[in-house]
Simulated scan of single mutants.
Amino acid sequence: MQSSIHRLVVLALDGVYPFELGIAHRVFDEMPDRYEVVTCTPDGRPVRSSSDFRVAPDHGPEALERADTVVIPPFDLRLLNDGLPATATALARIRPGARLVSLCTGAFLLGAAGLLDGRPATTHWALADTFRRMFPRVTVDPDVLFIDDGDVLTSAGAVAGVDLCLHLVRRDHGSELANSIARRCVIPPWREGGQAQYIEQPVPAAGTSGTAATREWALAHLDRPLTLADLAAHAGMSSRTFARRFTDEAGVSPGRWVVQQRVHQARRLLETTDLSVERIAHDVGFGSAVSLRQHLNALIGVAPLAYRRAFRTTA
Rank of each mutant, 00 (worst) to 15 (best):
Q261Y: 12
D163W: 01
T273C: 10
W190K: 07
P96H: 10
E20D: 15
A243E: 12
V258E: 02
E249H: 12
R45C: 11
M237N: 06
A113W: 06
Q294V: 12
D172P: 05
E216Y: 04
L84Q: 10
N179K: 04
V263A: 11
L275R: 10
N297M: 08
R308S: 04
V186L: 15
T69N: 08
G301D: 15
R191Q: 09
E278I: 02
S239H: 11
E192D: 12
A303S: 05
A298H: 11
L79W: 07
F286P: 05
S253I: 02
A289T: 08
V47R: 09
S239P: 09
A243I: 07
E271N: 06
R267T: 02
V138F: 03
G210Y: 13
A24T: 00
D274H: 12
V258I: 14
Y198M: 10
M134L: 15
G301I: 02
R183E: 15
P57C: 01
F53L: 11
V159L: 10
L77N: 08
R224H: 14
R215W: 14
T247E: 15
R267D: 06
Q2L: 05
L79F: 07
T87W: 07
D76Q: 12
T105M: 08
A218I: 10
D148Q: 08
R137D: 13
S102W: 08
L228D: 14
E36S: 14
A205S: 13
T272C: 10
G194W: 01
R132D: 14
P73T: 01
L11R: 00
L109D: 09
A229L: 04
R7Y: 02
E271V: 03
A86D: 13
E271M: 09
